[in-house]
Each structure stands twice: as structure tokens, then as C-alpha cells.
Design a binder for these strands. Structure first.
Length: 357
RNA sequence: CCGCCCUUAGCUCAGUCUGGCAGAGCAGUCGACUGUAGAUCGACUUGUCCCCCGUUCAAUUCGGGGAGGGCGGACCA
């Protein structure tokens, strides 16, 4: 794989790279970081993504995690942080007593998604936040950051991530500062995450500069639209496909999805295809087949998302046919993950006693 | 440590001041219309009225206690 291919693999299907020049330099091996405090000594650039183990994971997480396969294939070393303390710090989204169970569930879910994306989960290093975020050195750095950063600056940085409320907790302010420290603590060259993380990492880059450190390169994944139009909502079950939805449930949710003929904007169905289904099919060298009655043109097959989108925009492809085919392929992509959890029901039952106990 | 205020449908809130088993908007569900969905139109659903005790024929509404949340004051050697 040459440098251009590698760069393309790292940057494809992303919302933004900050900055592309820094990424190029990193992949070229002259990151300017000769101090030996990163890369773990093996010379491979390291990318990290952090997840706070809060609610159940869904297809939105899957699209973001699928890219970890790209990173691995591009020869990067990948670290996944299970940010258990963050899960509690953010308005106690996860009760303290459930952090162990939810961390275990998140790790299993992420491994399942990585495997379903065509990469080996064994190649990923998993780290739990509480393993290092309580170290004296880290704690001292956190206090010094807190002393040096204004409340409004941190609030602004975390506004897309930390739960907004009329009476915000102090924990929500610690959260972005800790995330900033995590990048360095994990020796990551690249911070990867959803575009909602942008505010926090941009603050992190500023603070790193203040402290005389190299700012992390940031790669952001797009956030998917909800199936009901607009943003995907965590609380609205019908607005997203869950990791463990049955094929019937998936079909039903897709049937109800907002999907105007010929329109791409806010079209969650197309986004599922672009960022998840097609990349996974491509990994397996498979194509996307659509069964369609003769009266509407008969069966068709697409080898690329772009070709499908072009037909959809031209209204050669009807939303209803698209939805049915998407449901079928999506169920197939999710099947191995669903099986994994069916074989280990305690993972969900212990992490979410109210919903699965 | 002291004082004041708040707690009603999934969400935002009204109401009970002058006690009689509770309402609006949004959301949601279901039809009609489009070969999907949405929009539009029509119909519909939803509640331990924070908990306990007391007064009363009857308490979400009154009284007492408690829990959770908010605000202010005091203390500052």
C-alpha cells in the first residue's frame, strides 16, 4: 500500500480531518515528534477513540467503529478507551455501581462491531479510564488544567457532548479536561471520534499548545441522521436501529424512516448505506442487491454507494425498494453482533438491569 | 447552621387559593392521501398529581413529617 492509498484509507468517510497536513506528515513518518514519548516504540502512529459506557450502543456507533478497521488496515495501532469515569461524570448517565458491567458490555459490543467490519479485535488495545485517570500525575495535571481554564470555555467545548441541564454538575466540566489529558496519557498521535467531539478536541489542541505539547491530530466521523428525520435521538428508539434489533424490527424501523424520493439531505437510510453497509460489503467484495417487482424495473445490483446514490437522486430508485433492500442487508451486517449477545445474555442484563434484567 | 421556593402525562407546564377520583401544547399511536416516510387532514391513547401520617363522607388540592432539587443568608479565627 503506498502512502496515498494509506492516507485515503485513514481519511475516507470522515467529516473532517484537523489538519490534513499534519496527518500527511504523520503518515510520512516525520511527525516532528522525536522525543520518544509516543508510538509505543514500534514506530506505528497511534489512533485512539474513547467511549463513555452509558446507553446501549446502536448503529451510529457502528459506523464510527467500522473505521477502526480502516485504521488497522492502514497499519495504525488502535487504542479504544472505555471511559468509565466519564460515563458517571456526565450527569451520572451511568450509576457508579454499573460502570464495571457497562464497560464489559461496551468492550464486547465494540469487539463485535470491529469483527463484523472485517478486522481482528485482538489487534485493538482496550484501556479503561479508571486504570490511569486516578494516577497522581494525571490527577495533578487535571487540577492544574482546572486552575487554568475558565468555566465558560469548558462549557462551550463540551456543549455537544455533555448533557445540557438547567443545573449542570461540576462533573460535566471535568469531563472535557480529562478527555484532553487522555490523549496524551494514551500516547495517541490521532484523536478519533464523532464530529460532536470537535469542541472538546479543539480545546484540547489549544491547551496542548499552551503546555508546549504537540496538539493531537483529529479525525472526526460524521453523525448519522435519525430515521425520523433530523438528528438521531438517543431517547427515541424509532429514530435508530439498535445493535440487537431483530431483522423484523430493523425492517419495521426502516419502513417508517424519513426518506423523500431523490433527496439526500437528512436521509438516514442513505447514510446507513454510505457509512456502514457499503464499506462492509466492500470489505467482503460483495455487492448490494435490490429485489424489485418487474413493473418498477426489476432487480438491480450496485457495486458502489455512489452509483446507488446517483440513481436515487435521479429517482430511478424508489424509496420503498431502497428501504426494503437496506433492511435486508443491514440485518445481515448486524447478524454476527446479535448472535454474540444472544450467546452472552448476561452482558446486557447486568449492564442494563431495567431493560434486560 | 438559618430562611424561602419547587416536585402533576415521555417532554414543557397549567390547575386545585374557595377539598368531590386532572388538563393544554409537543411527542406518540391509528386511519386517509401519495408505490416509502414526511407534510397535510381526521381520530385516539397516556398519569402511584414525589413519599408517609393526619383532618374529612371525600385530599393531587388542607395540616404535620420526610425525600430530592433550586435560591438566599449566616459563618469567614
Amino acid at each position: 500500500m503506498d502512502r496515498a492509498e494509506r492516507r485515503e484509507l485513514v481519511a475516507r468517510n470522515t467529516a473532517e480531518v484537523v489538519t490534513p497536513e499534519e496527518l500527511d506528515a504523520l503518515l510520512a513518518g516525520d511527525s516532528g515528534d522525536d522525543s520518544g514519548d509516543s508510538d509505543g516504540g514500534d514506530g506505528e502512529p497511534t489512533v485512539y477513540i474513547g467511549y463513555a459506557p452509558t446507553g446501549e450502543m446502536h448503529i451510529g456507533h457502528f459506523t464510527t467503529i467500522r473505521k477502526l478497521a480502516d485504521f488497522l488496515h492502514a497499519g495504525l495501532s488502535v487504542t479504544v478507551l472505555i471511559a468509565d469515569l466519564h460515563a458517571h461524570l456526565d450527569d451520572e448517565k451511568s450509576p457508579f455501581e454499573l460502570l464495571d458491567a457497562r464497560s464489559a458490555y461496551y468492550r464486547a459490543a465494540i469487539e463485535g462491531m470491529v469483527e463484523a467490519s472485517g478486522a481482528d479485535p485482538e489487534e485493538i488495545e482496550f484501556v479503561r479510564g479508571s486504570e490511569f485517570e486516578l494516577d497522581p500525575g494525571y490527577a495533578l495535571d487535571l487540577l492544574r488544567l482546572a486552575a487554568d481554564t475558565t468555566i465558560s470555555r469548558v462549557q462551550r467545548a463540551g456543549s455537544e457532548v455533555v448533557r445540557e441541564s438547567e443545573n449542570p454538575k461540576l462533573g460535566g466540566l471535568l469531563y472535557p479536561l480529562m478527555q484532553t489529558l487522555d490523549v496524551g496519557a494514551l500516547d495517541a498521535d490521532v484523536a478519533y471520534g464523532g464530529i460532536d467531539q470537535r469542541g472538546i478536541y479543539m480545546l484540547g489542541r489549544e491547551l496542548a499548545a499552551d503546555r508546549g505539547e504537540d496538539p493531537p491530530i483529529c479525525v472526526f466521523a460524521p453523525l448519522l441522521s435519525g430515521l425520523s428525520g433530523g438528528k438521531m435521538s438517543a431517547s427515541e428508539a424509532g429514530s435508530k436501529v439498535s445493535l440487537t434489533d431483530s431483522p423484523d424490527a430493523i425492517a419495521e424501523k426502516l419502513r417508517g424512516a424519513y426518506c423523500p424520493a431523490g433527496e439526500i439531505e437528512d436521509n438516514g437510510v442513505l447514510e446507513y448505506l454510505e457509512y456502514l453497509v457499503f464499506p462492509v460489503l466492500g470489505e467482503r467484495s460483495e455487492t448490494f442487491g435490490i429485489e424489485r417487482p418487474e413493473e418498477y424495473g426489476g432487480d438491480v445490483t450496485y457495486g458502489s454507494y455512489d452509483a446507488l446514490e446517483a440513481d436515487f437522486v435521479a429517482e430511478e430508485l424508489h424509496p420503498q425498494d431502497l428501504k426494503e433492500a437496506t433492511a435486508t442487508h443491514l440485518a445481515e451486517v448486524l447478524a454476527p453482533i446479535r448472535q454474540r449477545f444472544a450467546g452472552r445474555p448476561e452482558l446486557l442484563a447486568e449492564a442494563y438491569p431495567e431493560a434486560h434484567g
